[in-house]
């Protein structure tokens, strides 16, 4: 793996696409810090979060990023994600806030028995609770415009009403790099500094910058079952096996990471970052296909976002 940096020692006169994307993301983060009262960075431990955190370290160097990390946890993430989460926060010198929706915890909401309610309560409701509880006025999120059609129209600075709703018809125009960061009482802002990055950009940047990511992105033999067309990993003993199901060792990896019972794996032999990128470039299905959440209904992401999902 190369250790050369995207910004170190520029000798050519034109910035590369990664250098321009990096400069834009850093600019956005600094605008937030210069204007917000109490910003926070949502950290989901995935590759996009890893990238965003790395950009934050660069934006404020030599200071540590002047805001905490917030993980809205569902208790159903892969174990490897919890390990990296704690290490990444410590390495960055940042505070880590972990929020569990107490109601979901009490009711034992889980992806096996509760379907869409699981995402609703743990993630959508949990996020709103955490933002309200800590009085955060701006939250960074690692969403990208290439992920999904309604994301393509969301602004970098995306305003939420006092009850955290998004109104796609009432978005402020964003011109040049002049972000209007003024909010009315009770409003909060979600800011997406890596809006203009694509999946390939993220991978290339991780490769170039040597950013640490969860090992689940790399292929290894892991215990799996096949269910509803998704290849699921049996990550702990809470996974209820259906009659006739026996976990089978398969060489798998993940293209996105979420709650392990909702995240489909792909069979793969890519054990290194270049191999992962190679596979991604030769692949023929889009990234979010591994996520059960988008298949619920047509235009589902737009609806979730209006309700407050990130």
């Amino acid at each position: 793996m190369t250790t050369s940096s995207a910004t170190a020692g520029i000798s050519q006169a034109t910035l590369t696409h990664l250098q321009r994307l990096e400069a834009e993301s850093i600019h956005i983060m600094r605008e937030v810090v210069a204007n917000a009262e109490n910003p926070v960075m949502l950290y989901s431990v995935g590759k996009d979060s890893a990238c965003m955190l790395h950009l934050a370290k660069k934006a404020f160097y030599p200071a540590p990023p002047p805001f905490p990390l917030l993980h809205v946890d569902t208790t159903w993430k892969f174990r490897a994600m919890y390990d990296l989460r704690d290490k990444a926060a410590k390495d960055a010198g940042m505070d880590l806030i972990v929020h569990h929706n107490p109601e979901a915890l009490e009711k034992g909401i889980n992806p096996f028995d509760h379907g869409p309610l699981h995402t609703d309560m743990w993630k959508t409701e949990g996020l709103k609770q955490a933002l309200t509880k800590y009085d955060f006025d701006v939250a960074f999120g690692g969403a990208r415009r290439d992920e999904e059609k309604s994301r393509a129209k969301e602004r970098v600075f995306s305003f939420r009403s006092a009850n955290h709703r998004w109104d796609p018809k009432n978005q402020r125009p964003e011109l040049w790099k002049l972000y209007n960061t003024r909010k009315s009482k009770g409003e909060s802002i979600r800011v997406f500094p890596i809006s203009n990055w694509t999946e390939l950009d993220i991978w290339q940047y991780i490769h170039l910058e040597g950013i640490e990511i969860v090992p689940l992105y790399f292929s290894e033999p892991r215990p799996t079952v096949e269910r509803n067309g998704l290849l699921l990993m049996v990550d702990d003993e809470r996974f209820p096996l259906l009659p006739g199901e026996t976990p089978e060792m398969r060489s798998i990896r993940f293209r996105t990471l979420g709650c392990y019972p909702l995240t489909g794996a792909v069979e793969s032999n890519a054990r290194t970052l270049p191999e992962v990128i190679q596979e991604m470039l030769l692949t023929t299905t889009s990234e979010r296909q591994g996520r059960a959440i988008d298949h619920d209904q047509s235009a589902s992401m737009e609806k979730k976002k209006q309700e407050g999902y990130f």
């Binding site: 696409h17 415009r145 290439d146 059609k149 309604s150 393509a152 129209k153 796609p168 018809k169 978005q171 125009p173 809006s195 203009n196 694509t198 390939l200 047509s298 235009a299 737009e302 609806k303």
Partner: peptide, 23 residues
């Protein structure tokens, strides 16, 4: 492929700024 928001798909027109990526 490019008409994103639900309202727009129904009306068959693009009503906002959308950003697309290719390489």
């Amino acid at each position: 492929l490019v008409d994103g928001l639900a309202a727009e798909r129904e009306q068959g027109i693009t009503i906002d700024v959308a950003y697309r990526f290719f390489a």
